[in-house]
Design a protein around this nucleic acid. Structure first.
Lengths: 188, 188
DNA sequence: ACACCACTTGACTAATCGGTCAATTTTGGT
DNA sequence: ACCAAAATTGACCGATTAGTCAAGTGGTGT
């Protein structure tokens, strides 16, 4: 059974993902979670702390399962990565990328959000870098500046999601990813 | 002299760029513009219409001067484009990209914003495509799918700005742009 | 001089915002 | 069974939000 705190985390993440942090209404979150206001303030100091917790915990949990395959794979690592990239079923092009959304909304507004998003986005880059490092290690790729390549890759992915959100056309995402993969393939 | 309407447009764009549309306070905008509330409602039906006007007019004006060089250039077009891309002095990495910010905040929330941003982002892509088309025309580049290349380029640029905003490090932008230019150079 | 109209002023409203808190119920340990 | 702590309830608060409007100002054309 889902605890009250879990209900709040889930509802908060969803509302923030949909309407942004500033646009997320506390009463809407509470209604969605089916939790009363006073009860919420028992678990969290305020709206901001609840949102920070929701973002951190949700994304942390998601990333844990998302990049776990890197450890076990010994061959075909890049192909597995490409397959993952091309999989549009995990994407929500209407709402975009939860990380990018919060970065753009809050990084320049609030120091705590800035710190959190810096850490999350940094972890994203580190995860991608780990894939390239491993690919080089197992001989799937020529040695190169994987930090830079990971930065380029994450940037292009985020840009691709944004493009699809702007146009309302998921194909735009796929087109960018296709070209990105070509670029990475050039490093083999 | 700046008209009242111009003052409002300028203040609104700046506030929306800084705090997002939802986070932009009408009273703050009015204070910054030095205009009274009733006066504002003489020119605009409501906050939303003012914001839409501010975004459209400001970005339209900016883009007009930004890509005017494409018409006149006959050689070294790609180099000129690269120089423009590398120029970080026109960027505001704290606040990010005004287009991307609004797309991410509003595209999935409001239909009018969605329509406007679709048009603005589309124009951005068209501008970049025009550069590649011209480059091919004057023989600086091999023929290729310029629609796709423009989509890739704009996506990567937006992603690069986001990366720099997330990390607080302008160098991240430059690194991505460097790799992007390498990629385009591969098409020569 | 008068009238007209664009524009400005600033007080006002209703609704919503995030947040507080005392009273109450539920739960777990002994 | 009893107690204390944890959790829940819901009314209430001040501040802020976007938006309204009647009254007034100032310039322009006749």
């Amino acid at each position: 059974m889902e605890t009250t705190r879990e209900k709040l985390i889930r509802a908060t993440f969803d509302e923030v993902f949909s309407h942004g942090y500033q646009g997320a209404s506390l009463s809407d979150i509470l209604a969605k979670a089916g939790v009363h206001k006073g009860s919420m303030y028992h678990f969290f100091a305020n709206k901001k702390e609840m949102a920070l917790a929701a973002i951190e915990e949700t994304i942390l949990k998601k990333n844990l399962q998302k990049y776990s395959y890197v450890e076990t794979y010994t061959s075909g690592l890049l192909e597995a990565f490409y397959t993952q990239l091309k999989d549009t079923s995990v994407r929500d092009f209407k709402r975009g990328c939860p990380i990018a959304n919060v970065v753009q909304e809050m990084s320049n507004i609030d120091e705590e959000f800035n710190t959190l998003m810096k850490s999350i986005y940094g972890a994203f880059r580190a995860n991608i870098k780990a894939i390239f490092d491993k690919a080089i290690e197992v001989g799937e790729m020529k040695p190169c500046d994987t930090t830079k390549l990971a930065l380029f890759t994450t940037s292009t992915i985020e840009g691709a999601i944004l493009a699809a959100k702007a146009s309302g056309n998921a194909q735009d995402y796929s087109d960018v990813i296709e070209e990105l993969i070509e670029h990475i393939e050039g490093k083999r």
